[in-house]
Amino acid sequence: MPKKTPKKRSEAEEKPNFVVSDHVLVPKHEVCTEAEKKEVFDQYKVQPHQLPRITASDPAIRHLGVKVGDVIRITRKSDTAGEAVFYRIVSSE
């Protein structure tokens, strides 16, 4: 019996009662398709390791079911450009 209590607690903590993507600080995150991915690499003339990174366990993309190597398109609200697109590559840690 005493073992059950901490388990229950951690489950409740894993499921927060708020939606991360609804928060004002969190911009829109989308996973790029393979074609879009290639487009990004061509457009900026970069290698995958040169992109800024985001961890696979990041709360903002955890629910998207991403794998390492995916490119995430982030549409930020910007003070200067109104809307700015940014790319991050999913890394393991």
Binding site: L25, H29, I54, D58
Partner: peptide, 19 residues
């Protein structure tokens, strides 16, 4: 839950992500 914030950047990273 959409506007409440803290000034501790690490807490924000842990809960809402790097962005």
């Amino acid at each position: 839950t959409t506007r409440t914030t803290t000034n501790n950047i690490y807490e924000v990273e842990e809960l809402l992500g790097i962005e």
